[in-house]
Computed example of a mutant assay.
Amino acid sequence: MPLHAITEVYGEPGLQRRLAAELDQLAGPGRNAVADAAGWAGELHARQRRTREPYVNHVLRVTLRMLCHYRVDDPDVLVAGLLHDAVEDQPWAVTGITRHGPPPTAQALEAIAARYNQRVADLVAAVTTPPRPEGADRIGHYTGHLAAALDAQPWARVIKLSDFTDNGVGIIHAVGPLLARSARKYDAVIPLLRELLDRPDTPLQPAVKDHIRRQLDRAQQRFDAILAA
């Protein structure tokens, strides 16, 4: 069943049940780490919402997509998928620091490394967009960060491709004034993601890469329609 369809019909409980079913097939001690990260992500994003749903649905779909469609069974990558927005959106919750001053990004990454390992923290760091300097172009800042951060992080590319698919192909589930703003941002990054996907060291099977290419094509069509309107 498509992940957005699960969301529409069954909501967060349906996504959680699907993840639990998939984890039953995951061997080894890494399964416990992924289950722990799913629970922690739910706590970290508990008060956060997207336009039509609890925010945690997004991180669950990103991870399920890697499990179900990308054939990823690396626990570190799956844990990082569940936490991929935690440092960017909820650094105070990650650290337990009272909210004041600049975001405690470094401390949040240290907390993730301590709870799991340094590799997980490095993957999360690669897909965490740093604060935009005053006067910097919004889209240029976003694409520039991805180009630099994902260049030497093949597994972080996989997380970002799943994240982008959920946001890009799933843009038809969004509503409100941010729709066109998001379409412009995501449209600009498609050429970069195509190039990263096609690199020989991006650790996905050829059939999976073909699947993702079709998803990028679908996202491009949706951006074109939104921006034309």
Score class of each variant (00 low, 15 high):
Ala136Met: 14
Gly81Glu: 06
Gly140Asn: 03
Thr98Arg: 15
Gly101Asn: 06
Ala106Val: 07
Asp89Gln: 10
Val124Asp: 01
Ala108Met: 03
Glu110Tyr: 06
Thr98His: 14
Thr129Val: 15
Glu134Asp: 15
His84Pro: 06
Arg138Met: 14
Thr129Glu: 11
Glu110Arg: 12
Gly135Gln: 07
Asp89Gly: 00
Arg132His: 10
Ile139Lys: 03
Asn117Lys: 06
Pro131Asp: 14
Leu123Trp: 12
Ala126Gly: 02
Ala108Lys: 01
Asp137Lys: 05
Gly96Asn: 09
Pro133Trp: 05
Pro91Tyr: 14
Leu109Glu: 10
Val124Lys: 07
Pro130Cys: 09
Ala126Tyr: 03
Ala113Met: 03
Gly96Pro: 09
Ala86Cys: 06
Gly135Glu: 08
Ala93Val: 14
Arg119Pro: 04
Val124Ile: 05
Ile112Cys: 01
Glu134Ile: 08
Pro131Lys: 08
Leu109Gly: 04
Leu123Thr: 00
Ala86Pro: 03
Ala111Ile: 00
Ala121Asn: 00
Ala114Pro: 03
His84Cys: 13
Ala111Lys: 12
Pro104Gly: 04
Ala125Tyr: 07
Gln107Val: 04
Thr105Arg: 15
Pro102Ser: 08
Arg119Leu: 01
Arg138Lys: 13
Thr105Phe: 11
Glu134Lys: 11
Gly96Asp: 02
Ala121Met: 01
Glu134Met: 13
Arg99Asn: 13
Pro104Asp: 11
Ala126Asn: 01
Ile112Ser: 00
Ala125Lys: 11
Asn117Met: 05
Pro131Cys: 10
Arg138Ala: 14
Arg115Ser: 06
Pro103Cys: 02
Ala113Lys: 05
Thr105Val: 15
His100Ala: 14
Pro131Ile: 06
Thr128Ile: 06
Ala125Met: 06
Gly81Arg: 06
Arg132Trp: 13
Val124Glu: 04
Pro104Trp: 14
Ala93Cys: 10
Gln118Cys: 04
Leu83Ile: 00
Leu123Phe: 11
Asp89Thr: 09
Gly140Lys: 07
Gly135Ile: 01
Tyr116Glu: 00
Asp85Val: 00
Thr128Asp: 07
Asn117Pro: 08
Tyr116Ile: 01
Val124Leu: 06
Gly81Val: 08
Ala86Thr: 08
Val127Phe: 08
Trp92Asn: 00
Glu110Gln: 14
Arg115Trp: 04
Asn117Val: 02
Val124Gln: 09
Trp92Tyr: 15
Ala136Leu: 09
Thr128Ser: 10
Val120Phe: 08
Ile139Glu: 11
Ala136Asn: 04
Gln107Tyr: 10
Gly140Pro: 05
Gln90Glu: 15
Ile112Trp: 02
His84Met: 07
Val87Arg: 03
Glu110Phe: 05
Val120Ile: 05
Ala121His: 05
Pro131Gln: 13
Ala136Thr: 04
Ala106Asp: 15
Ala106Asn: 02
Glu110Cys: 02
Asp122Tyr: 05
Gly101Glu: 10
Tyr116Met: 00
Ala111Thr: 04
Ala86Ile: 01
Arg99Cys: 14
Ile139Ser: 04
Ala114Val: 01
Val94Leu: 12
Ala113Asp: 10
Ala125Pro: 04
Ala113Phe: 04
Glu110Trp: 07
Val94Cys: 15
Ile97Cys: 07
Arg132Tyr: 10
Arg132Ser: 06
Pro133Ser: 00
Ala93Trp: 11
Trp92Phe: 15
Pro133Cys: 02
Gly135Lys: 05
Glu88Asn: 00
Glu88Asp: 08
